[in-house]
Design a protein around this nucleic acid. Structure first.
Lengths: 147, 147
DNA sequence: TGACTTACTTTCATTTTGATAGTAACATTG
DNA sequence: CAATGTTACTATCAAAATGAAAGTAAGTCA
């Protein structure tokens, strides 16, 4: 029915990018994490053409990162809210933001605060198994057919 | 001279995606991390048209994620190697891969091994300040002009 | 009844992509 | 030393995606 089986690439990065590999989709997810839910909120925030916005929201919904929800019965109006899969995409966005802050950080920047402590977040990626920061130890990429 | 100043968006995610927001660029960085360096290696690995490959490699080089290096004087041949900025992009790729493994993990998958321990990597994002996993505590996105 | 709101769709010009073929600068082979 | 091969591209052009602008549908509100 959907195209999950079509993407036979064994690389999980490629599988993800097969439908999330464009700027608008990622910025939509960012805005959804910030709290936007409605068509016109996304459109005004991004300055995206409504044609493109319709298609991107449809893809993100089909792929299970967003979910349509009725927020008004009369008139019938729907909004788009993050699913668990969509919320679990936050680490990706935060790491992109961390790279951007480090390498394209000139001038005023949006920052992310921990609400409880009030301090700014400093996102880093670690390996949960060893606890080592990613990039500090040599890695091997193992193809699935090497048995 | 270059377009760094043109991207006046205060969001570090948007700044990064301004030139890295397409599938080919991200897959090129993935392949560069795996160890590919040459035009034809990238072309064969990705099945990308040479026109597009030329442009993407040029952009990644201009933006400082790759660096051209002469690997043969006669005939003159150049390869593309990761810079520090390019290597620091690995966490982003690993988090994308982690999401893909979790939500698009059907069938055989490429896995990443820690060479020293031999165990498979499980990448997670944490806040270096609190040590808390990202997504487990409420966050606030702070605009730069809110003083 | 007429203006307003929200979420789109239609249309069409512009831009980007992708497939194929060709080129430049050399090395290697017979 | 001519023919073939290698590597890294460029040129050309059709097809697909994008973007801007205007229009539509289903209602509400005054």
């Amino acid at each position: 029915m959907n195209d999950k089986n079509i993407c036979a690439d064994p690389c999980p990065i490629a599988r993800c990018l097969a439908f999330l590999g464009d700027t608008w989709s990622l910025l939509l997810l960012r805005d959804a994490h910030i709290g936007l839910t409605r068509f016109d909120q996304f459109r005004k925030s991004l300055g995206i053409a409504p044609t493109i916005l319709t298609r991107r929201l449809a893809t993100l919904t089909e792929e299970g990162l967003l979910e349509k929800r009725l927020y008004s019965e009369r008139p019938p109006r729907e909004e788009y809210v993050l699913t668990a899969a969509g919320r679990d995409f936050l680490p990706v966005l935060m790491m992109i933001g961390a790279w951007g802050s480090q390498y394209r950080g000139d001038g005023p920047l949006v920052r992310v605060q921990d609400v409880e402590t009030g301090e700014y977040i400093k996102p880093i990626a670690i390996d949960e198994v060893t606890g080592a920061r990613i990039g500090t130890r040599p890695l091997r990429f193992v193809m699935p057919d090497s048995d």
